[in-house]
Design a protein around this nucleic acid. Structure first.
Length: 775
DNA sequence: CGTAGTTTTGTTTTT
DNA sequence: CAAAACTACG
């Protein structure tokens, strides 16, 4: 009996693969993590590979942690020496060691999105760029994208061809300059700069090439160009006979690529075999997770994508229930409906809260579910929304720590200079910033010499006491060798931070204090776990990269029943639940309005479809899909059509009779009488003599919901029948201003209108959404 | 300088 | 309906 006995033949082939590039196309629920961990075990136990020669890369810290545990379970103690981490933390580790080669100091900090935004805003201000015309988001996106593609500021500048890109180039260069002077990297830099480090320093690269003889990458479909380069640089080893080995094993599923917006390059997986010609390809198509019915729905949806490797997932599992579809009157009814279904499944089937997940497209949707669950007394947890380290109070204290550790971090210093309030106002900060900028100083240095800064003299008494405060903290840390835990307590104490919280918002003060306590226990746990390099810099790095759940906040101790998980579809990747609710499946929400109205919608819609596929395949036993006729979105009542993805599911696969009484869809409440007479009305009507017409997935033109279909009210009169403008007319658009109509093409119930806007170029849009007015 | 009250603006997903 | 930006006042 060996650990390999439980593997199927394909899995076994993958596990036993020793040398050379290997591409594992692993469908959802096909046991890829198991393959990965077993392969690591195989290499160590059977092939004399040392654990430290293996590098396994995952995407999230959570996945890394889980994989590490599983490796240690299969391999034993030695498994702890396998380097399992995310792209970002691997890079941090390597940079921490060698960043001096590229002119950084070892105590560098990492900027998250908030920090990035602050820095960008201040740059735009000093460069006198009108934020009304070009806001910081635009620049952040452009720069981030460039970095994903390994395009540095110089190259970007060379390729700039219009005013827009030239401006971005200038900002990009300044942004990089300031990052460096702050001794900070942003997330994208972590990858790009590591690649730079390798490319410019062969000795460093060779060091890691010789060390990492076997490299594995999980979720390979979500790698971007920079990450691909990083991995291919590393997976290059010259053996004793002078042959080059590429011991690179990547595991992925092109159908689950959902991070294109973040630069993920789907061709990394589609063209892997071209990059590495001697690649062995193994497909894992047997699904161990879901029922046949769930898988059938997933397959029928994903088959509408054109850019994919052909494969079809199958399972030996039972048929299971049909996938359910419920159409609710509004978002509140949806939340209550889902909640009562959860309640009912718990009482009728003995399911536990942890068996359920509610998946939605946008974080904003979580609120109504949180409320409904709380009202019904069901434990639910929203995962991921606002991560621990993004909370104001945590960021403030962390900014103090950053300032103590690395006063070159201008963003951190600016954040806390007047928090809690010390009477140092915006004008003073502005003067200090100018002074620092002109004199090539860090912001902190400017603060130190505020006395001689024109315009800031008046506040110099206040800035001096701030400097003294920081020096005091440094003294505690360096001379008195206080622990991190103690240091944080001292900071809170000395700055009067708790009083500040109470003055700022008495309502939230208690919650926030609890978060501070959580930070303190997080720090003390870090100190216990970390070995000798458990210093302040290390702790900050830990904080910066762990965007996920922090310390258990003590709230609601686990009783073994767990929580209903509320999360975005993106967050659900890699997870599985017996019962899954995919909610808010409406045109304009999922697929999102952004994807529908993009210049070139097809690839975006395909990504949304993959996201849909990911959601469906999270379900093990039973799946509910739902949409609402109307919902509140940004304070306005919106009327959406059911998602186009429903049209891609053959109707006979859907059970549309889910718990219904007269009022269910309107209120989300179940009729108790009905429940008692017919205990399980939900599961009786499926697939059969219900009068539903059956058609296969090929016929997408069929009206899916003739039964309870209402025309969307949104923009009636423009969307349907006729338009009040014609080709050649001048129209006006809320965002782009006036433009000339180039063409109008009829498509389905809508018109695709092409308009040329001076200054914005030519845009294609759907008449129903564009809200164009004839001028 | 700080604050409270008002207006504007923006809408996806995240390491 | 937020959050952010702006304004007016003490």
């Amino acid at each position: 009996m060996s650990i390999y006995d439980k593997l199927n033949p394909e899995q076994l082939k993958a596990v036993m693969h020793r040398e050379g590039p290997l591409l594992i196309l692993a469908g959802a629920g096909s046991g890829k993590t198991r393959v990965l961990t077993h392969r690591i075990a195989y290499l160590i136990n059977e092939c004399d590979v040392r654990p430290y020669q293996i590098l396994a890369i995952t995407f999230t810290n959570k996945a890394a942690k889980e994989m590490k545990e599983r490796v240690e379970n299969t391999v034993g103690e030695e498994g702890a020496n396998v380097w399992v981490s995310t792209f970002h933390s691997s890079c941090v580790k390597m940079l921490r060691r060698f960043c001096e080669y590229i002119g950084y100091d070892r105590s560098f900090t990492i900027y998250d999105d908030d920090d990035k935004k602050s820095l960008m805003k201040s740059i735009l201000k000093t460069m006198n760029i009108d934020p009304k015309r070009m806001n910081e988001k635009l620049f952040m996106k452009a720069i981030s994208h460039a970095k994903d593609e390994l395009i540095g500021p110089e190259e970007f500048e060379k390729e700039a061809c219009d005013y827009m890109s030239e401006t971005v180039a200038k900002v990009y260069r300044e942004y990089q300059r300031q990052l460096k002077s702050c001794n900070a990297f942003d997330f994208d830099d972590l990858i790009m700069k590591t690649v730079e480090l390798f490319q410019n320093n062969p000795d460093v690269l060779n060091y890691y090439r010789n060390r990492f003889r076997y490299i594995m990458v999980d979720e390979y479909q979500d790698t971007n160009t920079a990450q691909f380069r990083l991995v291919s640089l590393l997976a290059h080893y010259e053996n004793e006979d002078g042959e080059i080995e590429h011991n690179l094993c990547v595991v992925g599923d092109d159908d689950q690529s959902i991070y294109r917006f973040r630069g993920a390059n789907i061709y990394n997986i589609l063209n892997f075999e071209k990059e590495f010609p001697d690649t062995r390809v193994i497909k894992l198509e047997q699904n161990y997770r879901s029922t046949k019915n769930i898988l059938a729905v997933a397959n029928s949806v994903i088959h509408n994508n054109t850019e994919r490797k052909d494969k079809t997932l199958w399972t030996a599992n039972a048929d299971g229930q049909n996938v359910h579809y419920v159409k609710y009157e509004n978002d509140i009814a949806e939340a209550e409906g889902v909640t009562s279904l959860v309640k009912r499944l718990m009482s009728e089937r003995g399911a536990l809260p942890k068996d359920f997940a509610v998946l939605y497209r946008t974080n904003a949707q979580s609120l109504s579910f949180e409320k409904a669950m709380r009202a019904a007394g069901i434990k639910a947890k929203t995962v991921g929304a606002l991560s621990f380290f993004q909370r104001k109070e945590i960021k403030d204290i962390v900014a103090y720590l950053k300032t103590i550790d690395n006063a070159r971090d201008d963003i951190a210093v600016q954040r806390i200079l007047n928090v809690p309030k010390r009477g140092i106002g915006a004008t003073t900060v502005e003067k200090l910033r100018e002074y620092a900028y002109d004199g090539g100083l860090t912001f902190y240095e400017a603060v130190e010499s505020a006395r001689s800064v024109p315009g800031a003299e008046r506040a110099s008494a206040k800035t001096e006491s701030f400097v003294a405060l920081i020096q005091g903290f440094r003294y505690e840390l360096e001379k008195n060798k206080v622990t991190l835990k103690k240091l944080i307590r001292i900071i809170i104490e000395e700055t009067g931070y708790e009083q500040y919280l109470i003055d700022d918002d008495p309502e939230k003060a208690d919650d926030r204090k609890e978060n501070l306590d959580a930070l303190i226990s997080y720090a003390s746990r870090y100190e216990e776990e970390a070995d000798e390099n458990g210093d302040l810099t290390g702790f900050l790095e830990y904080c910066g990269l762990n965007s996920e759940e922090a310390a258990d906040d003590g709230e609601g101790e686990d009783d073994g029943q767990g929580f209903v998980s509320l999360m975005t579809l993106h967050n659900a990747k890699g997870l599985e639940f017996p019962y899954v609710f995919m909610v808010g499946m409406e045109e304009g929400l999922f697929p999102s309005y952004m994807s529908i109205s993009a210049d070139d919608p097809e690839p975006e819609i395909e990504e949304e479809r993959r996201l849909c596929y990911v959601g469906i395949t999270r379900a093990m036993k039973e799946l509910w899909l739902s949409s609402c006729v109307q919902r509140m979105m940004r304070g306005e009542l919106q009327f959406n059509m059911p998602s186009r993805f429903f049209k891609e599911i053959p109707r006979y696969m859907l059970d549309m009779s889910t718990p219904m009484n007269k009022d269910y869809r309107r209120t989300g409440k179940m009729d108790d009488e009905l429940r008692e007479k017919k205990p399980t009305p939900a599961y009786t009507k499926a697939n059969g003599d219900d009068g539903y017409k059956r058609h296969d997935g090929g016929d997408l033109s069929a009206e899916p919901f003739a039964m309870n279909y209402k025309k969307p009210v949104r923009d009636m009169g423009k969307g349907a029948g006729t338009l009040d403008y014609a080709e050649g007319d001048t129209v006006s658009h809320a965002k782009f201003g006036e433009g000339k109509v180039i063409s109008i093409v009829k498509g389905g119930k809508d018109f695709e209108v092409t308009v040329e806007f001076p200054g914005f170029g030519t845009k294609k849009m759907l008449s129903a959404f564009a809200n164009l007015k004839k001028v």
